[in-house]
Design a protein around this nucleic acid. Structure first.
Lengths: 258, 258
DNA sequence: CGTGTGTGTTCGGTCTGACAAAACGATTGT
DNA sequence: ACAATCGTTTTGTCAGACCGAACACACACG
């Protein structure tokens, strides 16, 4: 171990392996030992040991000859979310926003430099996408992300932008830090952010920041998203932004005084 | 569990330790290294290594001098839940049940011999308890649990009851397997189950099984629970059971044909 | 029937790397 | 200034995590 730098290793390999296995199990529902071992380049027996350990703990269930993620993770996820009081106040308001607008709405908070959806509400007509509760958000390519970044203090913004990958998701994605900064200024002044097919072709979204009612620091963001076929004209440019911004304000007030 | 003293170990110790740390972090929101190390009887440096590893993976966040559960668990939990299609159909119906009855309602499914809440809906007046989404349910001491057990095939019931601990939660808890079996027979005939302060003093609940509409096997259970001060008389004994049973039936039908 | 390829599981041997104890800094309160 | 915390880093050592290979059990096929 003395050779080759390892800047600050201090890392538990077995834990990393367990979570790689778990994440893979989440991607493809139901999976066998061999398939996991191949795709992760870990030996079958090691994968088997990890799965048995996780099964004993209740985080994985063995369903015939397949392994699946266990529902115990709901408990850990809910516990983590309980600690963010934004969730409680945002949930009912988000539901009524969806009832008014239709489509889908999601609430994002930042954690350690990445955005994560803590709640999502879907109308019947909403488009099914790959974003769910717990999804890690691209801060530079979503309406929630940009609305959030636009209200971050300069210092924090710099550190977050430094870590951003600027993946190009679609031809419309902003991949230049300077272009993003100028758009963030516009967003801050306007009060809400647009996303016009920057992450998913055919999808548009409108996002607004959730600000603390006393000192004005940003707590998170909320957005409504839908297909370009329905999200257009003044509905997209004026009416939806109005409703999203209002919901964001209500959530901000409730979050501050409760 | 006294039985089953690890006939074949094949267990990854580091993973077990990581999850013990994570579960402890979930219990008490925000926690320092020393506190964790003491209460888990693990050395400080080991706890530190695990926390750093989990932080790198995003499952733990470092907030000043405290560590907290990361929101990434929401993703794993939601993924696990997606695989159970019962959740999708139960959610809207549970919400409208809560709107009609008030109080709180929860949906349970079984996984590997234990019951787990996959959804919970709270009215404004609902009592705050320690049960959340992801909570492991005592099958013998809850309305959902008994409603579920009552409709389990005899073979499965035996194996589940064998593993049950029969903890006495309150003076009212059924701790005798035979007494439970006779009550399960009554429940199966009646179609719904009561819980009269068997798990929490001052709380009552009414639960009904969610049955598949074609072959009648039990998919899960749903219950409404509230304080004894409001849950009594014909409201508790007749009207609420009626509504819960009806919601359960609707969910069962939707789950079967979708 | 064997036989081939696919599983999931078990078995030892090897060497990594997870672990505890103690030293180190950085804060706090006395 | 000192004592008493905290979190972090370092050290050596031995348990145990890992792999490869063998095993058991399925289904296919010819």
């Amino acid at each position: 171990m003395a050779r080759d730098n390892t800047p600050n290793a201090a890392s538990v390999g077995a834990t990393e392996r367990s979570f790689r296995i778990l994440e893979r199990l989440g991607d493809q529902e139901g999976c066998g030992v061999s398939e996991l071992a191949d795709s992760l380049s870990i030996s079958k027996s090691t994968v088997h040991n990890h799965l048995q350990t996780l099964r004993k703990l209740g985080y994985v269930v063995q369903d015939g000859d397949e392994y699946r993620l266990g529902l115990q993770f709901l408990g850990l996820g809910d516990r983590a979310r309980q600690h963010h009081d934004l969730y409680h106040v945002a949930k009912p308001e988000t539901d009524s926003l969806v009832e008014a607008v239709g489509e889908r709405a999601q609430v994002m908070v930042e954690e350690d430099g990445v955005g994560i959806y803590v709640y999502q509400s879907l109308a019947d007509q909403a488009v099914r996408t790959d974003s769910h509760i717990g999804t890690v958000v691209d801060l530079h390519a979503t309406a929630v992300g940009k609305a959030y970044l636009a209200h971050l203090p300069d210092g924090r913004l710099d550190t977050v932008l430094d870590r951003l990958a600027f993946d190009e998701q679609t031809p419309q994605t902003l991949t230049d830090a300077e272009a993003l900064r100028t758009e963030l200024d516009e967003i801050a002044e306007r009060g809400y952010a647009f996303n016009d097919e920057e992450r998913t072709v055919g999808m548009r979204a409108v996002g607004a920041p959730i600000l603390s009612a006393d000192d004005g620091h940003v707590l998170g963001a909320i957005s409504v998203s839908g297909p370009t076929t329905r999200m257009n004209g003044t509905w997209y440019h004026e009416e939806v932004p109005e409703m999203v911004a209002q919901s964001a304000q209500i959530i901000g007030i409730r979050a501050t005084y409760s």
